[in-house]
């Protein structure tokens, strides 16, 4: 992926952008055009962040709880953070990252490939398959763990690597959902890339694989990144299937570990739990920061025009 995205030259045009005002913008106009946006941003961020500050405060308090620890940051101590590592938190974090990274890459590749087929080819069963993909998502997964567990133990004698208590096994289960709602997001986006581009390339002698890799994929980078990010986040936070598949605590993901702490009815270590939740959120925040430039690259509009 990295190589393909770098091939394409980037246009600096951004959708909805206007020529920058060369003269200093007056304050009144700034308020009207931009100031309110900052106001909206600040208000929403307060709404977003308050619960998280609350968790952060609880995580810094050795006797932190989730109910009634209302004097935010009254005690500041790193004790909870220090204690995390002896509980296997490092292993969980590594497992989570492995599972989420592999799953999201697999999801992006398979989803994009499927979207390409749906968007560029007309074949028998196409509509049916598309509708089917949507309907599969509607199935209540209440009993999914029972079925998945049964499936995995039956695979044990055949493909031990895809059985229970194995990260590849869990990743494979997650990839079962690769074609789903993501395909639609990609599909809609693929449709906005003009077919004339493919046609031109085809006339120039490009194969369907070349069109896919060198023409379409670079143009749809924003949505690929969005799908990758969404897949990463949802995989990262999933625990119901994960705790069925992964049995030994050294193989757990962060979400299972946190869930296990919280499920202790009597002595739930809420301080640890809060510290773990704070640390667990960091990769997502970093990833979002890092990937933004790909999401909002404005490549499409530039390319379409060209």
């Amino acid at each position: 992926m990295a190589t393909t995205t770098s091939v394409e030259p980037r246009s600096s045009a951004v959708p909805g952008s206007r020529p920058r005002a060369s003269a200093p913008v007056r304050f009144g106009r700034w308020c009207k055009e931009l100031g309110w946006r900052h106001l909206v941003g600040v208000v929403t961020i307060v709404f977003c962040v308050l619960p998280l500050l609350y968790v952060l405060s609880a995580s810094l308090n050795p006797s932190g709880t989730l109910t009634g620890s209302n004097d935010l940051f009254s005690t500041i101590s790193g004790a909870n953070y220090g204690a995390l590592w002896s509980k296997g938190f490092g292993d969980w974090a590594r497992n989570s990252i492995i599972v989420a990274v592999v799953t999201s890459i697999g999801t992006v590749l398979m989803g994009a490939a499927a979207a390409y087929a749906f968007s560029r080819y007309r074949f028998r069963g196409r509509r049916g398959t598309l509708t089917g993909l949507l309907l599969v998502q509607m199935f209540p997964q209440l009993l999914a763990v029972v079925a998945i567990f049964l499936l995995l133990i039956n695979l044990k004698d055949v493909f031990p690597l895809l059985s229970t208590n194995s990260l590849p096994g869990l990743i494979a289960v997650y990839l079962g959902g690769a074609l789903g709602v993501n395909t639609f997001l990609l599909y809609g986006f693929f449709n906005t890339v003009p077919r004339e581009l493919d046609e031109a390339a085809r006339i120039d002698g490009a194969t369907h694989a070349q069109i896919f890799w060198t023409i379409i994929m670079p143009l749809v980078t924003p949505i690929l990144v969005v799908v990758g990010l969404l897949s990463f986040i949802s995989t990262y936070g999933e625990f119901i299937i994960a705790k069925t598949v992964l049995t030994s605590s050294s193989k757990w993901t962060l979400a299972i570990g946190l869930y296990t702490w919280a499920s202790d009815e009597r002595n739930a270590p809420w301080g640890l739990f809060a510290a773990g939740a704070v640390l667990a959120a960091i990769p997502i925040v970093l990833l979002t920061l890092f990937l933004q430039k790909y999401i909002v690259s404005g490549l499409v509009s530039g390319a379409v025009k060209g």
């Binding site: 977003c48 962040v49 989730l66 986040i233 739990f273 979002t288 933004q292």
Partner: peptide
């Protein structure tokens, strides 16, 4: 802004529900 707005999504849903 964008990174902060995504923060609630960065927590597993059950963690947020408990909080």
């Amino acid at each position: 802004y964008r990174a902060l707005l995504i923060l609630p999504y960065a927590f597993p849903g059950f963690v947020a529900a408990l909080v």
